[in-house]
Design a protein around this nucleic acid. Structure first.
Length: 595
RNA sequence: GGUCCCGUGGUGUAGUCUGGUUUAACAUACGGCCCUGUCAAGGCUGAGAUCGCGGGUUCAAAUCCCGUCGGGACCGCCA
């Protein structure tokens, strides 16, 4: 046995015991006659003392120790001399007086300091991820993620769910994200696809009568990276039979409420029950369907006031079917022209042509590009609608709704960050419901499903599918937390006739549908229960709970922005023999030089 | 496919805008020596960067320009 205790567990009760500890040399403080080693393992840090008087041999041996050497120490636990306790350490009341030292392994000087929580170039961190993971920040994140997943497993198990694994090698689905493909050796020219999610399989498990299924499921999407997107990521995949929308939402809400209390008790849930916003309301008030509810700065629709306001830019936008909306940026009335220009540049990124403003630096003073066009009545109505007071800055965008929402929604987040309105300890969960069932695809001149093919429409909206599909709502729900969509789900179609109606609506030929989803359609004919589910993203949830800026920080071995594993060097070329076996010939694009 | 930002000893930064004052500075880590109560230990001392790479402008380039590579943020994409 290498250790009798971990480096995090010795306390004053253990004083007098002879113990063995093993771990890494975290820090070393050599005072000549006495040397202190902070010995670290996954569980904590314990101070080990090498004294030249009482243990001269061990003391001499300790002279050679360097950072990150792996050692074993045998010694006696003793209380630290009064005044030398370290309250920053859980084991800070005691120390281990070393009698014997055994070096288990020496270590090269690491490329960065393990004990220091400084920002290191991420490429270096990823290249030496196994060292990066030794650092406290990463250790904490790994533990948090373990706690989250463990809590979820226990919670769902207690409620009768089974965790069932579904295949990683599955069938390609041309819809949605680009697939990762795996060539088949046994079937030349054919490919498996890695699942974007176990969507079809979990529905088939419902046909199978499982009733309550979950999986901590790895999903794969071959799309470009973002801070909250990796080529492979993990979803909590849930599917239930004999449930309606309300049942799924209640379960998930209860799960996350209890999870937060258990895993991150220092965080506060903003509102419980979670607020529910219709898709339309989310856009109207926040400009996006993943709104951050931790602060105000809500959008205000002033279109009706601006119909004949005299300001041509506004009038024209309204005449071409658009709207005029604004945000009251409280307390920024004294923004300089330069500061407002910066905001204008910001919204231009998202298609806005400009940013109109009315600054109210002081009582009675108005600074604006367009206020002069407004009649006193319109101006008064505008100020009232926007609850404008002296000291405020009102900003407006006039355009098509899509652009107004996008630009103001982004501006709202930008302003909140800039003005420091975000409380990092608050978790603002909310539900977005009543999504449009289908959205018009201008390019292809047809309706696309807004969620996925098997999502059920609201029962009362089924007649609309024939008359006015754009107005039909789906039985879909998104779970949103602090500016991130952390999960989406729906009640599925379990009726063959309705499913065919939907295929028809979105222009999916029945023959093609059979080819791609024949197994689903056939399965549905053998007695399919009403069912639905949801799939919260584990990485994003952990990222937010850990207070991290991207999901790489909560993934042990993530890929970089170019989808590379820089530690192992994946992807990589393969041996010609391997390609031969797979019946694959590589043709590089002209821009890539052959090496 | 596109836009923006970054690249200086092992690590983190300064210097770059405004070229010469630099023998490229500081901290930390690293080597050696001293030191019995530290916990960011301390003191003395030493070594370590042709400034990502290539080209150009110039009497002179870490600094300006072009290209390229690497990294990050974002748009497109992500049912």
């Amino acid at each position: 046995m290498y250790k009798t205790h971990t480096c995090g567990e010795l306390r004053t009760e253990d004083v007098g015991k002879t113990v063995k500890l093993a771990g890494w040399v975290h820090r070393r403080r050599d005072h000549g006659g006495v040397t202190f080693i902070d010995l670290r393992d996954r569980f904590g840090i314990t101070q080990v003392v090498f004294d030249s008087q009482t243990a001269p041999q061990a003391h001499q041996a300790a002279d050679a120790l360097r950072m990150e050497w792996v050692i074993q120490v045998e010694g006696i636990v003793r209380k630290r001399p009064p005044g030398s306790e370290n309250p920053a350490l859980a084991t800070g009341e005691i120390e281990v007086a070393a009698q014997e030292l055994r070096v288990l392994n020496s270590a090269k000087t690491p490329p960065f300091l393990i004990y220091k929580d400084e920002e290191i170039d991420e490429h270096t961190r990823l290249k030496y991820r196994y060292l990066d993971l030794r650092r406290e920040r990463m250790r904490r994140n790994l533990e948090l993620r373990h706690r989250v997943v463990k809590f979820i497993r226990d919670y769902l198990d207690e409620r009768g769910f089974w965790e069932i694994e579904t295949p990683i090698l599955f069938k390609t689905t041309p819809e949605g994200a680009r697939n990762y493909l795996v060539p088949s050796r046994l079937h030349p020219g054919e490919f498996y696809a890695l699942p974007q999610s176990p969507q079809q399989l979990k529905q088939l498990l419902m046909v199978a009568g499982v009733e309550r299924y979950f999986q901590i499921a790895r999903c794969f999407r071959d799309e470009d990276q973002r801070g909250d997107r990796q080529p492979e990521f993990t979803q909590l995949d849930i599917e239930m039979s004999f449930v309606d929308r309300e049942d799924v939402m209640q379960l998930v809400e209860d799960l996350f409420t209890k999870l937060v209390a258990a895993v991150v008790p220092e965080k506060r849930i903003l509102a419980s029950p979670f607020p529910r916003l219709s898709y339309r309301e989310a856009l109207e008030r926040f400009g996006k369907d993943n709104p951050d509810l931790r602060y105000g700065l809500e959008l205000v629709n002033v279109t009706d006031l601006m119909h004949n306001c005299g300001f041509a830019v506004f009038e024209q936008a309204i005449r071409s079917g658009g709207s005029v909306r604004g945000i009251n940026v409280k307390g920024c009335g004294e923004y300089s022209r330069k500061q407002i220009d910066e905001l204008t540049e910001f919204v231009k990124q998202f298609g806005a042509k400009g940013l109109a403003y009315i600054a109210l630096p002081h009582e009675g003073e108005v600074r604006s590009t367009f206020a002069k066009f407004l009649s006193p009545e319109v101006q008064a109505a505008l100020f009232e609608r926007m609850r404008a007071e002296a000291g405020d800055l009102l900003v407006f965008i006039a355009d098509k709704d899509k652009i107004v929402f996008e630009a103001l929604g982004r501006l709202r987040v930008h302003l909140a960050e800039k003005l420091g309105l975000i409380d990092e300890n608050v978790l603002a969960f909310c539900w977005i419901i009543d999504f449009p069932f289908v959205v018009w695809n201008e390019e292809e001149q047809r309706w696309d499903p807004s969620h996925h093919l098997f999502t059920a429409p609201m029962p009362e909206d089924i007649p609309l599918l024939d008359t006015d599909p754009g107005r039909a709502r789906g039985q879909q729900y998104d779970l949103v937390l602090n500016n991130y969509e952390i999960g989406g789900g729906s009640i599925r179609i379990h009726d063959r006739a309705l499913q065919e109606k939907v295929f028809k609506l979105i222009g999916l030929d029945l023959e093609v549908a059979r080819e791609r989803f024949g197994h689903m359609l056939e399965a549905f004919e053998y007695g399919t229960p009403p069912h639905g589910g949801i799939a919260p993203g584990i990485d994003r949830i952990c990222m937010i709970l850990a207070g991290e800026p991207n999901i790489r920080e909560v993934i042990a071995f993530p890929k970089n922005q170019a989808a590379r594993d820089v530690m192992a060097g994946a992807p990589s070329p393969v041996e010609p023999k391997q390609l031969e076996e797979l019946h694959i010939r590589v043709e590089l694009p002209a821009t890539v030089q052959k090496s």
